[in-house]
């Protein structure tokens, strides 16, 4: 990015933002948001922001509210921006919004997709609501927090982006016995895993032969599903927009009697 000469300070007719403002909005986006929403806003560890559809509302005020307050219970953080910063940021987001073809809602049959999910043993590693295993990440709100493209890649090539909290580790004991699992915690002297039976496995590093950090995801690649099954499964996963606290009991005070 070259430093913009004064001559470039032409008004952007639509948003009341100058070219420099938008360039700075882009900078703010890249410095704070791109990590999750992708360099071009097309999604990653957060949803796509260029599809023109917003779950939390699509007016400038709605979008600013999400940015200021975050989405509680999800990884979307809150940001303490100044007015000028948030204006430039949203101005930039608006230049992105039209950039993707308005993608059709993901084709496929979610009900059929749920059957594909159950048949392929997904719930032996994943939870939706309170149902399933905690070995892999919870999928209750997957459709709200990931773009369809990202979800597709998670199925076909899971090692492309391994979530930090789900790093695979294999511990080799002194007698050669191997224990694999998801890394729950680790420091210089110890490592704590969760195995596929959902049990904690705990090791002191000086008591084992080797601790191997897997570069492959613990999630098997599902690249031999039929085209139809894959499409239905995707439609099902994209439809998952449950409340992250669904299933927990929230007891209210019973009141003064």
């Amino acid at each position: 990015m070259r430093y913009l000469p004064m001559a470039a300070l032409l008004l952007y007719p639509a948003w009341g933002q100058t070219e420099l403002d938008v360039a700075q909005g882009k900078g703010i986006f890249r410095n704070n948001c791109a990590f999750c929403h992708g360099l071009t806003g097309s999604g990653g560890r957060g949803p796509s922001l260029i599809s023109g559809r917003f779950l939390h509302g699509s007016t400038d005020e709605d979008v600013k509210n999400v940015i200021r307050n975050g989405v509680p219970g999800t990884t979307m953080p809150s940001f303490d921006f100044e007015t000028a910063e948030i204006d430039h940021l949203v101005g930039y987001l608006r230049t992105l919004a039209g950039s993707a073809p308005k993608s059709a809602p993901v084709p496929g049959d979610p009900a059929q997709g749920r059957q594909v999910y159950l048949r392929n043993g997904c719930s032996s590693c994943h939870r939706i609501g309170m149902e399933g295993s905690v070995f892999g990440p919870e999928l209750t709100r997957l459709g709200a927090s990931r773009s369809p493209d990202y979800i597709r890649e998670s199925l076909l090539n899971p090692s492309a982006d391994i979530l930090d909290d789900y790093q695979g580790v294999t511990v080799v004991a002194r007698d050669g016995k191997r224990t694999g699992g998801v890394r729950i915690n680790e420091d210089t002297f110890s490592v704590q895993l969760r195995d596929v039976s959902q049990n904690f496995r705990i090791f002191q590093k000086d008591e084992v032969r080797e601790v191997i950090h897997e570069t492959k995801s613990l999630m098997p690649a599902y690249n031999s599903l039929s085209q139809e099954d894959l499409q239905n499964l995707l439609a099902y996963l994209v439809s998952l927009r449950g409340d992250v606290n669904a299933g927990a009991h929230v007891n209210k005070p019973e009141g003064v009697r």
């Binding site: 700075q24 900078g27 410095n31 100044e82 910063e85």
Partner: peptide
């Protein structure tokens, strides 16, 4: 990443991340 920063007194002035 490098990009032109917006200067506001008391706010981060990094120009990238």
């Amino acid at each position: 990443y490098s990009n032109p920063p917006l200067y506001i007194q008391g706010r981060p002035y990094w120009g990238g991340v």
